[in-house]
């Protein structure tokens, strides 16, 4: 699974940068064509949901998706599946 921010919905409030336990969401630095600074994703393949959603068959963590007031965060199916090498620091 792949973590994506829908640029047509995001309003750039940066609430997602406050909640992710891996700090995947980082404040962005570039205006998009709607005049919004969308957060940038720092190595999104570290997200628990990207790695394990398929295995568990349900959404794990998902706190960014729940708290995003603009329904802009979702996970997309990757086809064909691309395995990532993931380094997780604690």
């Amino acid at each position: 699974m792949k973590l994506v921010i829908d640029e047509r919905r995001c309003k750039g409030c940066n609430i997602c940068t406050m909640v992710c336990p891996y700090r995947i969401f980082r404040e962005g630095d570039r205006l998009n064509d709607r005049g919004v600074v969308v957060p940038r994703l720092d190595r999104p393949e570290r997200c628990t949901n990207c790695r394990l959603q398929g295995l568990y068959g349900r959404r794990l963590c998902g706190v960014c998706q729940m708290i995003c007031p603009d329904q802009a965060i979702r996970w997309e199916e990757e086809k064909p599946y691309e395995p990532h090498r993931v380094v997780i620091e604690f």
């Binding site: 047509r8 919905r9 309003k11 750039g12 409030c13 940066n14 609430i15 998706q65 729940m66 708290i67 995003c68 007031p69 603009d70 329904q71 802009a72």
Partner: peptide, 16 residues
């Protein structure tokens, strides 16, 4: 969508 709420308004979270 997107709804009319301001940037960062919490109402959207409660709908979720």
């Amino acid at each position: 969508l997107p709804h009319i709420y301001c940037t960062g308004c919490g109402n959207g979270t409660i709908i979720n």
